[in-house]
């Protein structure tokens, strides 16, 4: 009854953004623009004074813009083109969210990278006998970097931290898989 295909689709939808924000923003701007143009058209057809610019004046102004100083026109064109380029990039990039999927079983699961980071930080803190505040974890797409700041005057066992973190990462069944990279900072912290 629960098909893997359905789960794959759902997990993909949870790990990628729907781009709803960008689409709604574009739709709202377009709606405002269309509402304004429509109002001006009706007002000019009725012979009423325009809200901002009458359509015929707008056409004249656009035609006159060719004669305007080249620098300003080029700058306006470049800004418009850059906004367009940003929208094209937004439309075509995969828009991954910082999440990864866990193995499919009776259920499908998606795990936030922040959960993985705090979990690794606690594992490293316990193994190294330091405060969790002294561990800084960054989870990238395929690598987790664990940076431990030792307590000043105490020896911190890097090998123990590394094996504990590796054991935890080996327990994960996430896709994309993670590789952990543990290191100590040069300078310790005082008063921990």
């Amino acid at each position: 009854m629960t098909t893997p295909a359905l789960y794959r689709r759902l997990v993909r939808r949870e790990t990628h953004s729907s781009r709803a924000g960008a689409a709604i923003a574009v739709a709202v701007v377009l709606m405002l623009l269309l509402a304004w143009v429509g109002t001006e058209l009706v007002l000019s057809a009725l012979g009423q004074p325009a809200l901002l610019v009458a359509p015929t004046d707008a056409v004249n102004a656009l035609a006159g813009a060719v004669a305007a100083p080249a620098g300003i026109v080029v700058a306006i064109g470049a800004v418009v083109a850059v906004i367009g380029l940003v929208l094209v990039v937004v439309a075509l990039t995969p828009a991954r969210r910082d999440r990864r999927r866990s193995g499919l079983d009776r259920t499908a699961a998606v795990v936030d990278d922040r959960v993985i980071a705090t979990s690794l930080a606690r594992t490293a803190a316990y193994a190294g006998d330091v405060d969790p505040e002294q561990v800084h974890v960054t989870v990238a797409r395929r690598r987790a970097s664990v940076v431990v700041t030792p307590s000043s005057g105490r020896r911190t066992d890097l090998a123990a931290i590394r094996s504990a973190v590796d054991a935890e990462v080996a327990d994960y069944d996430f896709t994309p898989a993670l590789r952990a990279n543990v290191r100590l900072t040069e300078n310790g912290t005082v008063g921990a």
Partner: peptide, 9 residues
């Protein structure tokens, strides 16, 4: 019934 779990922070 299908269940999708999200583990978030």
């Amino acid at each position: 019934t299908p269940v999708v779990i999200q583990i978030v922070a």
